[in-house]
C-alpha cells in the first residue's frame, strides 16, 4: 500500500507499482489538469511538483512516491479566484493557444523561476524544455520574464 499526498489530501494506492504517477493523478485523484503528451519524459505536459520540485510525472513510478507530497496545477492558486503569479503572467501575455501543454508549462516555470529568479533568454532556452506544439513560445517567453518580475515584487500571494 502506498500512501501519498496530492494537493494536501491523502491518498492510498495498492495497484501496480510500475504505474506512472501521471495516471494516478489523472484517473484516481481525478485531477485532469495534468496532461499526457508522450509518456516518455519528452514533452513536459505531465509536469507536477514532487516534494516541491517539478518532475515529469509520466516518468515517476508509484513505487517511488510513497509518502511524497505532490502538487498539481489545480492547487497552485491560493484559494478561489486568486491566481498564482505565473498564471497571472500567462494571462497577461495571452499565452495559451490550445492550452493543452500549459499546465505543464506553468508548473515547470514555477520551479524554473525558483532556480533562476532573473532568467536570461539563454537560461530559458536551455532549461525551459516543455513542448508547446501550438508554438506559443514567443508569448510564453514574455510571460516567463513577466512572472520573474512579479515574483521579485512578491505578488505571489
Amino acid at each position: 500500500m502506498i500512501n501519498l499526498f496530492i494537493n494536501g489530501k491523502s491518498f492510498s494506492f495498492d495497484g501496480d507499482e510500475d504505474m506512472p504517477l501521471l495516471w494516478f493523478v489523472r484517473e484516481n485523484a481525478e485531477l485532469t489538469g495534468t496532461k499526457y503528451g508522450c509518456g516518455i519524459g519528452q514533452c513536459g505536459a505531465c509536469t507536477v511538483h514532487l516534494n516541491g520540485t517539478a518532475v515529469r510525472s509520466c516518468t515517476v513510478a508509484m513505487a517511488d512516491v510513497a509518502g511524497a507530497k505532490v502538487e498539481t496545477i489545480e492547487n497552485i492558486s491560493s484559494g478561489n479566484k486568486k491566481l498564482h503569479f505565473v498564471q497571472k503572467a500567462w494571462i497577461a501575455e495571452d499565452v495559451p493557444q490550445c492550452g493543452y501543454c500549459q499546465s505543464g508549462q506553468i508548473m515547470a516555470t514555477i520551479s524554473f523561476l525558483e532556480e533562476f529568479p532573473n532568467p536570461t533568454d539563454d537560461d530559458i532556452n536551455k532549461y525551459h524544455t516543455n513542448i508547446c506544439r501550438c508554438g506559443s513560445y514567443d508569448d510564453m517567453r514574455r510571460a516567463i520574464h513577466l512572472a520573474a518580475k512579479l515574483q521579485a515584487e512578491g505578488t505571489s500571494s
Binding site: L31, T32, G33, T34, T72, I73, E74, S77, L83, Q87, W90, I91, D94, V95, P96, Q97, G99, Q102, S103, I106
Partner: peptide, 11 residues
C-alpha cells in the same frame, strides 16, 4: 485577448 484563457492556465 483569447477567450477561455483562465480555464487553460488553471487546469
Amino acid at each position: 485577448p483569447q477567450l477561455r484563457s483562465e480555464e487553460r492556465v488553471t487546469g
